[in-house]
Amino acid sequence: MITKRKSRYILVEPSSTEARQIFTMLEAELLRILGQITYTNASPKVVAQYGRLFAVRVNRGFEKNAVLALSFAHVQGIGFRTIKISGTLKTLKECAKQYSLEPDKH
């Protein structure tokens, strides 16, 4: 019996956008931090990009592991900040739009 995959989506902001192949390297970095077993269970994958923000899909129940792993992940000196977790990409897209509209003088 095929069961529906239950996922959670995490909206992530990198501290810098000046890096090549950041998504591939991020997934490798998450594998290193989480370990083979947790990585396989969580199956984190970058699925969408909204400007400088991007969405990572993880299996339900492993979103907290993913948030923790993203705190430790550094790719080419770039850190990652989690903005929101949601059950749908639609909500994240709206959140990303809102986030980009707000002025950021940083």
Binding site: S15, S16, L68, S71, H74, G79, R81, T82, I83, I85
Partner: peptide, 9 residues
């Protein structure tokens, strides 16, 4: 910048 974390993290 690379060390800043969200409240969730």
């Amino acid at each position: 910048d690379n060390g800043l974390l969200s409240s969730m993290q």
